[in-house]
Design a protein around this nucleic acid. Sequence first.
DNA 1: ATTGTTGTACGAATATCTTCGTAAACAAAT
DNA 2: ATTTGTTTACGAAGATATTCGTACAACAAT
Lengths: 129, 129
Amino acid sequence: MKQIRPTESELEILGVLWEKGPSTVREIHDILSQTKDAGYTTTLKLMQIMHEKELLQRDTSSKTHVYTAAISQQKTQQQLLDKMIDTVFGGSASQLVMQALGHHQSSGEELEKIRQYLTAIEKEQKENR
Amino acid sequence: MKQIRPTESELEILGVLWEKGPSTVREIHDILSQTKDAGYTTTLKLMQIMHEKELLQRDTSSKTHVYTAAISQQKTQQQLLDKMIDTVFGGSASQLVMQALGHHQSSGEELEKIRQYLTAIEKEQKENR
DNA sequence: ATTGTTGTACGAATATCTTCGTAAACAAAT
DNA sequence: ATTTGTTTACGAAGATATTCGTACAACAAT
């Protein structure tokens, strides 16, 4: 399986693309520059490199190119999670889960969803025993 | 608050130190080289740099130095989680939790622990309403 | 004492990431 | 047609991370 390792800056860009969908460099840059301090050409260059690396696709049919994420959020999440669980949480996923639950408030709804999820997993485990 | 940003390789070393406790370069290297391919002096150099950065402490009283992690696993976990939730999971901790639960088998005990944790959090939320 | 082994220190090469200046293409406005 | 603003392309500098060769010190075994 192909190992994708986006850098920190690349993840920021992917994050925006995942949320907003296909975007121009200008759009990405405007959003990023709210929280970060970098020139326009920096963002441009990054996205060009990401295109070379095949992290992004782009449509060059008009003068202003439109970029799209070429890797799915899900897959990227899973990959980064796996590595993190492995190196930082000593291999224990539930350790990570509890740490995450502890320090971020989630709405009651979200907690309820997680609870249902737990139940489903436990049920599945019983069946496969 | 001081932002710590260990690199990938540094995290690997920290991971071993957190698990095994104080260790020599040789011990760390032997473990890492099971899954990674790097020379001994590379590991040594990395740990020396980490000591300069104050990521590691070391005892130089004997010829063979003994290194210890200078930052806690908990704090590092939290910091990395926060950033990850922010950039990769669009700010949703529960999104991360479900993704993590989905693709890693946890024992029934662990799941039970998480369930209790959930209950505690929900109770707390009610009280603070 | 000589040899072999294991360790640290140091410097430098290499690789990778990040940043930005500059030039050229293009379109809209004057 | 010239100016102005927006965009891409490119190259190169700067910053950071990774890798390893070499030298030297400590020590054990012969």
